[in-house]
């Protein structure tokens, strides 16, 4: 589904990603771990098309297409979804308005008619229940005044409604309380399917207890320094990052 080859990225002439290689197949769950500042969010942003990053080399191919060539909204319509580490507040635009605009953009992109208003409400309310949210959140401005945890849950609500192919979750677990982590994880698990892949950036094993990854990668200093199975996360939890970083050096 996604093939990243030797990707190098600069921010303000400083190299942040130093040759990333990653193969993600449909149906897989990949966890990316790594120290603060190692480039995890940078990778997530570059994949979703955020400005301010310069790709200096390498490639990212998504479903056979050059991902890096596409405008951010086209990537999103093609099924790439980023759950932000820091979701943005949009005063004056209601959650439900944005959800409908997003869903209709996707449908239009695929040559489908606009969603029927009743069907849309049914779908949205189903997902709100799935994530055990209050329906009132639908009518509030996007993320405005939401608590940290509420914002994260709202990201997953959007993900559940838009049904993307490639779900990139940047530290969705940070800021969630124990109960919320469980609810959100169950929401994510319900989205698992052979056609869908997940990239989960996280610092903590506890998320991976709920959502078992197929592969775990360690990103350090802009490179993937180690990859392994779910066990690698446990090992990291125990030993920290220094041993992989050292092994690499």
């Amino acid at each position: 589904m996604l093939s990243i080859k030797n990707l190098t990225v600069n921010v303000n002439d400083k190299q942040i990603l130093k040759g990333i290689n990653l193969e993600i197949k449909a149906g897989e769950i990949h966890a990316i771990m790594g120290p603060n500042g190692s480039g995890k969010s940078t990778l997530s942003h570059v994949l979703s098309g955020k400005g301010g990053y310069t790709v200096t080399g390498g490639s990212a191919t998504y479903q056979g297409k050059d991902l890096l060539e596409m405008a951010p909204e086209i990537r999103a319509r093609e099924g790439v979804f980023l759950a932000f580490q820091y979701p943005v507040e949009i005063p004056g635009v209601s959650n439900i308005y944005l959800l409908k605009a997003a869903l209709n953009s996707i449908r239009k992109h695929h040559g489908q008619p606009e969603v029927d208003a009743m069907d849309f409400l049914t779908l949205v309310k189903d997902k709100v229940r799935l994530l055990e949210m209050d329906e009132k959140f639908l009518y509030r401005a996007v993320n405005e005044g939401f608590s940290g945890g509420e914002k994260k849950r709202n990201e997953i609500l959007q993900m559940a409604i838009l049904e993307p192919r490639l779900c990139i979750m940047d530290e969705t677990d940070s800021g969630l309380d124990i109960d919320a982590l469980k609810i959100v994880s169950e929401g994510v698990n319900s989205l698992r399917s052979p056609e869908r892949a997940f990239v989960m950036v996280t610092h903590y094993q506890r998320l991976l207890d709920y959502i078992k990854p197929d592969k775990v990668h360690v990103l350090a200093h802009g490179q993937i320094v180690k990859s392994g199975g779910a066990d690698l996360a446990l090992e990291l939890e125990e030993k920290g990052y220094s041993w992989v970083e050292e092994a690499e050096a």
Partner: peptide
């Protein structure tokens, strides 16, 4: 960018 990442064109 947030809106773009939610499928909305610029």
């Amino acid at each position: 960018f947030y809106l773009q990442s939610r499928c909305v064109d610029e």
